[in-house]
């Protein structure tokens, strides 16, 4: 039960966070909002990482650092910047559901590069996601 509540809390915190992004974007460029939000987020997360996982931080190898670098580029550079740029152009209500379809692309990449298998549930979910995106994109107003 605690895990469920914490996960729901994360969803709510991200939800309100996106509203704050929308408000910030009214007076700033997406790049600035992205960098500033990353900086503030780091002030929260990095001390926690140091306190809880000091040995892992200090013992990290160059090979792992390289993988983390590419992860950081995908998630926090292009992902966040494109996410905020899309919110500034089409608004929160249209951008966020499209951005939230990322598991479909993760799955596609995992099938191509990690030989992950696909089952009927996954195909059903993908079709439903695509249907939802089509509804949003074809909204005329």
């Amino acid at each position: 039960m605690t895990g469920i509540l914490l996960a729901l809390a994360a969803a709510f915190v991200w939800g309100i966070g996106n509203v704050w992004v929308r408000l910030a974007l009214q007076g700033m460029r997406p790049t600035t909002v992205s960098v500033f939000s990353l900086f503030i987020g780091l002030l929260l997360l990095f001390p926690l990482a140091l306190i809880l996982h000091w040995d892992d931080v200090t013992g990290i190898t160059s090979g792992v650092i390289l993988t983390i670098f590419f992860y950081g580029m995908a998630n926090f550079l292009t992902g966040r910047f494109l996410n905020y740029s899309s919110i500034s152009r089409i608004g929160l209500n249209k951008a966020i559901p499209i951005v939230a379809s990322s598991p479909v692309f993760a799955l596609t990449l995992a099938v191509i590069f990690l030989d992950e298998s696909v089952n009927a549930l996954i195909i059903l979910g993908t079709v439903i996601v695509m249907g939802g995106i089509m509804l949003i994109v074809t909204e005329r107003r």
Binding site: G17, W20, V21, L23, G27, M28, S37, L38, I40, L44
Partner: peptide, 16 residues
Amino acid sequence: WAGLSGLAAGGGIALM
């Protein structure tokens, strides 16, 4: 607003 969004993004990651 940008700072609060950063706190929410970081806080969401920690909660997850």
